[in-house]
Design a protein around this nucleic acid. Structure first.
Lengths: 150, 150
DNA sequence: AAAATTTCATTGCATATGCAACATTGCTGT
DNA sequence: ACAGCAATGTTGCATATGCAATGAAATTTT
């Protein structure tokens, strides 16, 4: 009647990774969404700007793994909220240079310690497993960019 | 001028997990999207039905971590494609019993081996890291349901 | 230097998503 | 048995998303 191979989604690594990642993201996003009205795309763009000091849409697309249209719209939203500034660039006028405003920096001075604390807590909870977990994540991320064994 | 804490998204575990999970999902989804027109929500519902033999929307919502409206719409789509059947239940007429059609089972006889091969390949590529990686995923998944240390 | 090609960012559009209503049915307690 | 409450699935609606097309500017080719 059945004739189907036995297969349990619960043990399937892509599924497990998706659920685990969703848990981590949502757990964190809950904080900065409810307290600061910041979504995950917002967060990624803001962090990259905090880290780099300034970047183009394309830079961010490459750095934080987001579609360029998503970056573009996120940037517009953040600009209209006064958190970042968009400035056409003199040298190459196709580029739009994005930077945090002072208000944006003030926000990040609150957000970044929160994220650092989350990371520390996570590492402490995972304990001995963390190092290997993190290393494996790194291997998977590299596969995305470089050679893909599948 | 800056006065911002140093923070690199690239080393942030929630971000890394999201990118790694996205890679795995997309890598796999590429196959069954292009070859069978199946999305990830489709896939999750189909797998659960293949595994359980039949389930309600609520069952699936709980089993595969999807919003019930998403499950509902996915089920409608799959029904209109002839891959699953929706049947009101006699005992509790709020429930809708979902099962694979013969066509759906035929599809799963192709898809499931493909997924099993992907899993095997992944385990082989990750080698010694796999066990610890999988265990850590399990710990994170449990946190979602049970006690949350954050 | 003109034309063709490439790069960058934005926008239009169709679809997907999450959340909150909603209608229906079942269950609980009195 | 009946009123109130809970559970189930669907739908409406506002927003988010991905992809392709576009416009504008730079680069490369001839």
């Amino acid at each position: 009647m059945e004739g189907l191979p036995e297969f349990d989604l619960t043990g399937f690594t892509p599924y497990r990774a998706a659920v685990a990642a969703q848990f981590l993201s949502e757990r964190l996003a809950r904080e900065y969404r409810s307290r600061f009205g910041i979504s995950i795309p917002d967060w990624r763009v803001l962090v990259h700007l905090a880290h780099s000091g300034g970047a183009s849409v394309r830079d961010i697309e490459n750095a934080v793994v987001m579609e360029k249209s998503k970056v573009s719209r996120t940037a517009s939203r953040l600009e209209s909220r006064g958190l970042i500034a968009k400035r056409p660039q003199a040298r190459d006028r196709r580029l739009v240079h994005l930077t945090l405003t002072e208000e944006g920096r003030a926000l990040m001075r609150e957000l970044l310690p929160l994220a650092a604390a989350f990371q520390a807590k996570l590492e402490s909870v995972l304990g001995a497993d963390f190092e290997s977990f993190d290393r494996t994540l790194g291997r998977l991320i590299e596969m995305q960019a470089g050679e893909d064994p599948f």
